[in-house]
Each structure stands twice: as C-alpha cells, then as structure tokens.
C-alpha cells in the first residue's frame, strides 16, 4: 500500500505535512548540503523584520534537561537583505516558501508583508506574534483584541496565505485562535518557545546574555499538544503543530490532537536529517496502522472516548 501524506493549508497544497520551525533552519541554505529541500512540505524562513537586527549578546543558547533555552534575538538581514541574498536561493525549490515576519509595531509587520507580497517566490506569511525575546511583540499576541487587530491589518495587506503563530503563555488559546480566524487568517501555528531563564549559581548571575530566553525541545511537547487540542476545539482553519517534535510518532500525536501539519524545530540541531526522517516515519506509521491518508486522522483523539489503554513512548 502506498500512503498519501499530502495536506492542504489555505491555498497551499503541501506534498507532506512536515516543515521547519522558523529560526531553526536559517533560510534553508545551511541545510541544503545535508537534505534535499524539495522533500519538505514547505520551507519556513527565519524571522524577517523591516531593518536588519544584530540580535542579542552571547551567550545565546543553553542546554537544559530535555530542552534548550535560547535568546538569539531575531537576528536577521532585514527586508532588503532577505530579498537580495535569500530569495535567489529559495527560488530553486518546489515547496511553498512561507516567510516568518516580526516587528516592533503593527506598522512594521505590515511593512514586511507589503514589501514581500510583490515577490512571486513568497507564497505566504507566518506572523510571529510571540517572541519572548522581544519585549514589544507581546501585546499583539496575548489579547483577543490585539490578535484580531493585527490579523485584520495584515489581511488587508496581502492575498497570500496568512498564518498566525500564537503565543504559548495565554489562558485562552481558543479565543485567540477564533479572533485570528474571524479576521481571515488561513492557518494557526502553535506554539512558539515558552519564556524562561537560567542562573549560574557559582557566578550568581543569569547565564544568557539577554537574561531571558525561550524554552524549546522535548520538554515543551506536552504544552504544545494541549494548545493544539484547545485550538482544534475552537476553530475550523488548519492548525500547524510545533514543539518538541523529534520523530514520526511525535508528529502523529500532533495530527491526532488536531494539527493538519507540523513543524520541526530544535530536532534539526540535533539531527540535521530530522525532517526527512520524520516524513518517512509518518509514512511508516500510516502503513503499519492500515491508513492511507492523513485527513481522517486529524483530530481523531477528540473523537475517541476515554484514555489510552496502553501507553507507549512516554
């Protein structure tokens, strides 16, 4: 039996549901010698802001137990640098290209979307509503009104696909999701890193140069799964699940919780071939479980009653 992993997100048809989480795959070039970018479902870029950003002072990354803490600070070449240096490379590949957008104000987000709307190779935008490393990003991401407003503004700036990437630390994910859906978002992405810090007891000071950072990796998978679950109960538009996905079974858990597609982040650092590996492991999973497509499995855990009889892989 051959399995079909293709999924549709808004106007984009993806050959499979696996794509990089923004910021963990650069602009694709860095991994091009190790994997074939044409195998991916989509290519999601690192953040782009209107002007170049130098990023935060090092140290920028610390390993925790089962997790990473990072404070890269959205270092990026800005709109011009992106168009000049990154687009020519991305042009060579088949999968849709989705640009992660960041700004200090709604106006700045709009500037990026408008500037890149004209570039044919850009197929959609992923709006980073939550970067724990950038203070002013927060207010758009944590209130229903804020999410509605920024979605509305950006919707009027582009006809291309608009994905809203939500903040993890809010009490009401479903309400935020609904606000974005109501204003015309094509998909929701959840979750971004969770704010945190670490202190070196010997030197009695924070370890990260920026003091605070974002937690990612295996330790946040449970948080991300619940978020996806709650969004699935609230919205009809596709959800893209992200957080601690390291293998095909992790990915299937997100599909069963309600995700239509998934992103691989921290795992790319550990295993450069993580994404092609996840794709083939998902295909194996479907085959082993007698399934031929993903569609009926999306959100299936909501439809099965009670708790699992056997608990594996936990």
């Amino acid at each position: 039996m051959t399995v079909d992993l293709s999924v549709t997100i808004g106007n984009l048809k993806l050959a499979n549901p696996v794509m990089p989480a923004s910021g963990t795959f650069g602009y694709g070039q860095e991994y091009a010698g190790l994997i074939d970018l044409n195998d991916l479902g989509a290519i999601v870029s690192k953040a782009v802001s209107p002007a170049p950003r130098p990023g935060n002072k090092p140290p920028r990354m610390v390993e925790l137990k089962g997790a990473l803490l990072n404070s890269i600070g959205l270092q990026n070449p800005g709109i011009e640098g992106f168009i000049e240096k990154k687009i020519p490379f991305l042009r060579q590949f088949k999968p849709p290209v989705v640009v992660n957008v960041v700004g200090n104000s709604i106006e700045e987000y709009r500037q990026v979307v408008e500037a890149l709307d004209a570039i044919d190779r850009v197929d959609g935008f992923e709006i980073n509503l939550s970067c724990p490393n950038v203070q002013k990003g927060l207010e758009f991401g944590t209130t229903v009104d804020g999410v509605a407003r920024i979605t509305r503004e950006l919707r009027s700036a582009t006809k291309k696909d608009l994905w809203m990437k939500l903040t993890p630390t809010v009490p009401n994910p479903g309400d935020l999701g609904k606000a974005a859906e109501g204003e015309g978002a094509d998909a929701l992405v959840a979750i971004n890193t969770i704010g945190g810090m670490t202190i070196d007891a010997e030197s009695r000071r924070p370890v990260l140069g920026a003091r605070f950072g974002g937690v990612s990796g295996p330790a946040i998978k449970a948080v991300a799964l619940k978020y996806v679950w709650l969004l699935y109960e609230s919205v009809k538009i596709p959800i893209i699940g992200v957080g601690g996905i390291f293998n095909g079974v992790d990915a299937m858990e997100f599909i069963l919780a309600g995700a239509t597609a998934i992103q691989v982040g921290t795992a790319n650092f550990v295993n450069p071939t993580a994404m092609p590996d996840v794709i083939s492991q998902m295909a194996d999973w479907l085959e082993e479980h007698g399934e031929s497509t993903l569609q009926p499995l999306i959100g299936e855990a909501h439809r099965t009653q009670g708790a699992a009889l056997s608990i594996k892989n936990h």
Partner: peptide, 9 residues
Amino acid sequence: GCGLGACLA
C-alpha cells in the same frame, strides 16, 4: 547548537 550556521547560537 547546530554547527551548521542555522541557529545563530
């Protein structure tokens, strides 16, 4: 982090 130039750590 990655060793590949992607994570900027």
